[in-house]
Write a protein that binds this DNA or RNA. Structure first.
Lengths: 174, 174
DNA sequence: GCGTTTGTTCAAACTTTTTTGAACAAACGA
DNA sequence: TCGTTTGTTCAAAAAAGTTTGAACAAACGC
């Protein structure tokens, strides 16, 4: 595994893109960033290009600037909209739709927590109550006590995790 | 992409393992858990088996209980030790080494932050200062102002991220 | 209606990550 | 010393995840 420990040894992305210096650097920074969050590369690229663009961009701009397929651009933008990290620009007379990035941390963190973190905590809760039930049914008293202690511990972790989230959002809200 | 939004439609792992009910449930919970953190499945399985075992286990126990290879078990335990999530049990007369899980949240979160989060923040900082420099060199004043605003924003995010971490550890410390 | 532009979908191709297993090293007792 | 047990390493196989591209749908103006 390479996923654990150690600062990974930087690798520049060599794609057929038309990004110049600063743009490329910023895009790479976001590629790294989303990687940490477990999101695919193209998500970081797309957000990066929007973030570094003084004007909103359309799908075809992303295709051209990043050298990715239209399909990738479409899917990437959809995911970013789902995270609340990108929104459509309203009310220009144009036919095509332009996108701009959300740039305040509160919104970004909030979207990530809502879409990526909460669902896991929710589904975890269900599993934990099943677990508690299973532990109660262990016949051997010594094993039962042990299992119940473990389950209680997991439950406690989840509870604390749930408490931390709103706090996090409050601290990061500007 | 499936990585974004939506509670994923549960799938039971069907391996040639010798885990019974409760054990299997707990292991699956940890598999999900580490997946969210971007760590490989076997890491979650191994931690899970240790967590649910009343006694410390040796590598061969993991191989047998999980139906994974010895190589996998060895690498997984190494990674978990690196995260501070598993430690060797000292001072039994035995030849083989036994492992037990760390079960307090403070240590687990601390290890994860130290190994997985901090290195990225550190390497990010370097890149951001290069970025600031590049922005200063943009000749066009309007573009320069825009780029500098963006870079400042990223810098601010990083700074806040760095501040949140110790706070997080404090809140989760028992 | 018809041609054009814009965006979406999804199976197949591709890429990356994870796991395996066979070869190796270390520790130990006989 | 030798055989056995225990653990590590790493190239290759397998699995998982991502991107592509061609086919399709929708919106629009003429």
């Amino acid at each position: 595994m390479d996923c654990c420990m150690a600062t990974s040894p930087e690798q520049e992305s060599e794609t057929s893109s038309s990004l110049e210096g600063l743009e490329r650097q910023i895009v790479d920074l976001f590629v790294d960033g989303v990687r940490v969050l477990g999101l695919p590369r193209s998500i970081g690229e797309i957000y990066g290009v929007l973030f570094v663009s003084p004007t909103p961009l359309a799908l075809d701009d992303l295709v051209e600037k990043l050298g990715i397929s239209k399909g990738s651009a479409s899917q990437g933008v959809r995911a970013l909209k789902g995270l609340g990290a990108v929104r459509e620009v309203e009310g220009n007379g144009e036919r095509r739709t332009y996108f701009e990035p959300a740039v305040d941390l509160k919104r970004l963190v909030g979207g990530f927590i809502r879409e990526q973190v909460r669902p896991h905590i929710e589904s975890g809760k269900k599993k934990i109550s099943k677990l508690a039930e299973a532990a109660r049914e262990e016949p051997d008293p010594e094993r039962r006590a042990f299992f119940q202690e473990r389950v209680a511990r997991i439950d406690n972790w989840t509870r604390r995790g749930g408490q931390v989230l709103p706090l996090l959002q409050r601290i990061l809200g500007e």
